[in-house]
Design a protein around this nucleic acid. Structure first.
Lengths: 205, 205
DNA sequence: CGGCACATTGATACCGATCAATCGGGGTGG
DNA sequence: CCACCCCGATTGATCGGTATCAATGTGCCG
């Protein structure tokens, strides 16, 4: 969708499917820095920068809306509520990035995997991607590895460990959280960084 | 300066000294997610979020300006140029965070250290903290370790390696870049993510 | 039906953590 | 003024977690 070095164009909003931000190092290694799910958008104000410093790619087939710069500007100017919502979304994206830095720096591989699964579960939940405790997660082990700074081989072993521990099971395309408490405990997960304001009385997650 | 869980207050701007954002894990481990130097500010719009998801601490004695929410809002509304500058600064902060994720995930410890030194050198340079190729870097090895996801013991060994390689030397409080080309090569450093628009004809950095 | 990408498992190497001890320097109290 | 003390830096020995290399299994799609 966007390549590093490109000139920033219109703002993207994911309507359907999954995408990710990533960088490729000279060595050829890839590091994914964010997953984007329906409702997520690329940075507003990107136009302020001369060129992109990372790439964005669809993980699944996806439908994406593009909002031209001019439309965006009038939208932000004329509708304060929309502007607020976009700034808030931006802040949460940043918060998620910070939590990824924490994961990469100070969590073991099993904690990292568990933590990411907790995050993705909640994000997927809040946009209605969860049915019967199962989440549609179209992420291959190779993609997970590139997001978590590990090898796909090692991701595989960690997933096995989590399965044997009875915490969660990740099958082709869907995540099954078996024991939420155990998973959260392993991850050391604190959802405060997601700043969810979607809670309702009936929400027991 | 700010503790995780606090309610966001006024916007801070660092005038002098160094500060950092960080989180403490349940295990007691600390992960630093950003260094802030004079001219850097905390997130605008933080007020949109109900509570802080991380803490901010001064590393050295520092002088900090606080801008009340109301002042900030009128400032942004009345001076488009200032608003632009703040949005740009915000975008660059994000870009730096992304590059930290890449470092933590896919760079070896020596590459990580070299990369951070390149970044801090350029940032310090652009605000005039460099004299005779020496930068004032008031960072203890323990602080560096918490920023790079390593142990202070291992940081020490890596610094020694970089010194013996003739790339750079970090003494108490000051960084001496001996062979910039070598350091950049070790780091695999590409400054594009800093989006420096300060370049002048005489700037040979 | 064949091929290909992804998942799985085993054996081994190595990087960085951990534990432990010593050193050095700057600030403080006697 | 000097001795002490404490924190950060340094070095050594050892352990453990992940990467790496390699081979095989498996399901999907053309």
């Amino acid at each position: 969708m966007i390549r590093e070095g490109d000139e920033p164009g219109p703002v993207f909003v994911i309507l359907e499917g999954w995408a990710c931000r990533y960088k490729i190092l000279p060595s050829g290694a890839r590091q994914i820095m964010a997953f984007m799910i329906p409702g997520d958008s690329c940075d507003l104000h990107v136009n302020l920068l001369p060129e992109m410093d990372h790439s964005i790619q669809a993980i699944t087939t996806a439908t994406v809306a593009t909002i031209p710069k001019a439309t965006m500007q009038s939208l932000m100017a004329d509708h304060p509520a929309i502007a607020r919502a976009m700034y808030t979304a931006q802040l949460i994206d940043e918060s998620i990035m910070r939590s990824w830095i924490v994961s990469m720096g100070r969590r073991s591989s099993i904690e990292r995997v568990a933590h990411l699964m907790c995050e993705l579960y909640l994000r997927a939940y809040s946009i209605g991607l969860v049915t019967d405790g199962e989440v549609a997660l179209p992420l291959s082990q190779l993609v997970l590895a590139d997001a978590l700074g590990m090898t796909s081989v090692h991701i595989n072993r960690v997933l096995k460990e989590l399965r044997l521990a009875g915490a969660m099971a990740l099958r082709r395309g869907s995540l099954d959280i078996i024991d939420p408490v155990k998973l959260i405990q392993i991850a050391g997960f604190d959802e405060n960084y997601l700043h969810r304001r979607l809670r309702t009385g009936s929400d027991r997650h």
